[in-house]
């Protein structure tokens, strides 16, 4: 099952994961428009905690025992049979927030603008979720379905000749 992991030893608490999460889930996907031109911007699906020297960001763990699924009144939260992730169907959600109450990781957020749940969906349509792709210290990594670990910059190539213009 694909999942985002964090190396807390090198998480610097910058919050860029959260910024790019919001951008990715906005309509425009343009960072300045998302924050400065739209009346309401999407809630980030990433939760960031900072205390003293410690900092970490966390998003849906796609639990084996998904309390959000068990507590959901309408079946909006479900465990996908295909890839074992926890999925959210906004059209079934009535906004009772039961899942928010029971989430042991505190990573389900109310998006008050839409009365829906803001929850990590691993960025459908992207190879690497936005938070991982934009983590400047490579603290966030994605473990793919086949167990490969990738970070946002692993495509970096060592080039033999750098062209300077």
């Amino acid at each position: 099952m694909a999942k985002v992991y964090l190396n807390p030893d090198v998480c610097i608490g910058c919050g860029l994961c959260s910024v790019y999460c919001t951008v990715e889930h906005s309509g425009t996907k343009d960072i300045i428009k998302t924050f400065n031109s739209q009346p309401e911007r999407p809630q980030s699906r990433v939760r960031i905690e900072r205390e003293g020297i410690n900092a970490f960001s966390i998003q849906c763990r796609h639990c084996q025992e998904p309390w959000c699924v068990y507590s959901c009144l309408t079946g909006a939260m479900s465990k996908s049979a295909a890839n074992n992730t926890v999925e959210y169907a906004a059209n079934k959600c009535v906004g009772c927030w039961s899942c928010v109450m029971v989430c042991p990781n505190g990573v389900l957020a109310r998006d008050v603008s839409t009365h829906q749940i803001a929850k990590c969906d691993l960025c459908p349509g992207r190879d690497v979720p936005a938070c991982v792709a934009n983590c400047p210290n490579e603290a966030l990594t994605l473990m793919t379905d086949d167990g490969k670990i990738i970070n946002g910059f692993s495509e970096d190539m060592v080039v033999e000749n750098i062209v300077i213009d």
Binding site: V10, C11, I12, A55, N137, E138, A139, V158
Partner: peptide
């Protein structure tokens, strides 16, 4: 040696950057 700041160097990235410099 402030542990909140020393985390900003990820040795995986650091070693890569230094090796790249020597390689170039």
């Amino acid at each position: 040696t402030d542990l909140a700041l020393t985390k900003r160097i990820n040795p995986d990235i650091g070693a890569r950057r230094l090796s790249n410099l020597l390689r170039s």
